[in-house]
Amino acid sequence: MTASHGRGLLHLAAAVDQPAAHDAASHVEAARLAERGGLDFVTLDDTFARPGPDALAVLSRVAPATNRVGLVPTVTTTHTEPFHVQAAVATLDWVSRGRAGWWIDVSSTEGEARLFGRRHAAPADELWREAGEVADVAAKLWDSWEDDAEIRDVATGRFVDRDKLHHVDFTASAFSVKGPSIVPRPPQGHPVRVVDATEGHARPTAARYADVALVSAASSAQARAVRDHLRGLAAEFGRDPDTLRVLVSLLVDLGDGEHAAEAGHGGGGPRQTAQGPLYRGGPVDLAELIATWHTQGTADGFHLRPVEPRRDLERLINGTVALLQHRGLFRTFYPGSTLREHLGLAKPVNQYAVTGGTS
């Protein structure tokens, strides 16, 4: 059954990045494994800075091969067209029947800028302000169709009620969008927006627009401090902080099987590396770390990134997650069907249906 305790439900997600894989089959296999463990969602990273398949397209292929697990590709807001990005994410929500998320990221290097030739690289603060504007206009475009805008009346030939389509007329620092969207309102209303808020530049955008904030932290105290900061910022922006889920993002190396975490990990805790905080040890100690940090109020859950994709994900699901389920700390089945339901987040009210406005 679904378990909870004083700190609320534990949320777990995993990365299914496989740098050497260019086919969909291995990603389907990984997502199905994560789904078998009841994970909230899987992420697939993407960047213009390295070669590889398009993350959103890969997870669109994974969607019909899975039933419950959330699917969260990285899609940059730099050098991309906001109108096209929101339509693509909305489409993923439709083809997955309400399981889409969007890991919002920026492209900061001159090499990435040269791929497009439209502008030079920009400072991080500027890029994240733009990312916030893209997140904002995406929500407006998702709302530009009211839920019952589609008529599909064969007799009259009317497909849509034009009174329930809305122009957003949005002007930002680097783009403008009139709308409405070309895709009907997604099943979740707004697909889940995810931001890595480890760096300070990204935190205002995460606090204002994200449903899930990821935080790389090497200690419980560090993670809790960032979570408190993000919740405080969310309140300043007029949000209920309880609508923001903060997950600790950890690299995990479970290659030592059931052996204890190696010396230097602080009794099973992570240690800082060039790639970010790394946990190296066994699935049992990892389960203990997750349970302890969650009970302490460190975070709402964990986003786990396997060092060795196939091996570590399997040990994570069959070892760590199974143990957490056995202890009643993590669900053994999905109580709902959408990613928002997994995260305990309500479907947003359509801003235009409520106000009748166009801005």
Results as ranks from 00 to 15, higher is better:
Phe175Glu: 13
Ala291Asp: 07
Val246Met: 01
Ala15Gln: 12
Gly268Phe: 09
Trp293Glu: 12
Leu56Asp: 00
Leu247Tyr: 00
Leu251His: 12
Ala225Leu: 13
Ile104Ala: 12
Asp196Glu: 14
His265Asn: 13
Ile104Trp: 02
Arg311Phe: 09
Gly282Asn: 04
Pro204Phe: 03
Ala139Glu: 14
Asp228Ser: 01
Ala55Ile: 08
Ala124Tyr: 09
Gly356Lys: 04
Lys178Cys: 02
Asp147Phe: 03
Thr171Ala: 12
Val177Cys: 13
Gly70Trp: 11
Ser173Lys: 08
Gly344Glu: 13
Arg208Val: 09
Gly269Glu: 02
Leu278Asn: 02
Ser216Gly: 11
Thr205Phe: 03
Gly179Arg: 01
Ser181Tyr: 09
His11Leu: 02
Glu308Asp: 15
Val75Ala: 14
Arg99Ile: 01
Pro51Gln: 01
Asp312Ile: 04
Ala218Pro: 06
Pro204Thr: 03
Glu146Trp: 05
Glu288Arg: 15
Arg185Asn: 01
Met1Gly: 15
Val106Leu: 10
Tyr279Ile: 00
Gly101Cys: 08
Gln86Lys: 03
Thr74Pro: 05
Gln275Glu: 15
Ala213Asp: 07
Asp211Gly: 02
Pro53Phe: 03
Ala131Gln: 04
Gly37Thr: 02
Ala263Trp: 08
Val168Thr: 09
Thr358Pro: 08
Val137Ser: 15
Ala31Asn: 00
Gly117Tyr: 10
Val106His: 06
Gly200Lys: 09
Arg68Asp: 00
Leu39Met: 07
Leu329Gln: 15
Ser108Phe: 05
Gly232Ser: 08
Pro64Asn: 03
Met1Ile: 10
Gln86Tyr: 05
Ala124Gly: 05
Pro270Ala: 11
Arg231Asn: 03
Ala235Asp: 12
His265Leu: 12
Phe116Lys: 04
Leu289Met: 14
Thr243Pro: 11
Gln296Thr: 07
Arg61Ile: 13
Val85Gly: 00
Val28Ile: 15
Phe175Trp: 11
